[in-house]
Design a protein around this nucleic acid. Structure first.
Length: 115
DNA sequence: TCGATGACACGCT
DNA sequence: AAGCGTGCCATCG
């Protein structure tokens, strides 16, 4: 069953495991989802996710910590607000990964991500 | 079927 | 520090 999950679903599951107030990179999500090297697919997969899933897409940033959407775009603005609502400090469209980056331990991964 | 595209990452300059 | 080229691969026309 767990092996049956499609790649997109594994990405959704992984994104759902990002804690409130923390952020992760596209590459990190791809790795944790068992899809190393497929960072580009993460964004695509999340855009396909059903809305009622409440996917915390706003907690996913580039590895540099910057928001992936174009500056001043609606998506970028919404993401900015959602992050600030969670207490994440965003300066110049960028978050300090060192302060807010999600660093899951093995136990956390195994318990929350049973593929 | 092939080429272009994209919510990326990384190494090199 | 910032930009450019290359690797990635599911989708789409």
């Amino acid at each position: 069953m767990s092996e049956q999950l499609k790649p997109a679903q594994r990405i959704w599951q992984t994104a759902l495991a990002i804690p409130f107030g923390k952020v992760a990179s596209y590459g990190q999500i791809a790795d944790l989802a068992g899809l190393p090297g497929r960072a580009r697919y993460v964004g695509q997969a999340m855009s396909l996710a059903p809305n009622d899933m409440n996917l915390p897409w706003h907690r996913v940033l580039r590895s540099s910590g910057e928001i992936a959407f174009p500056l001043n775009s609606e998506h970028a603005e919404l993401q900015l607000h959602k992050l600030q609502e969670e207490g994440v400090v965003v300066i110049n469209h960028r978050v300090k990964i060192k302060d807010f980056g999600w660093k899951p331990n093995l136990g956390e991964i195994l318990s929350k991500l049973e593929f």
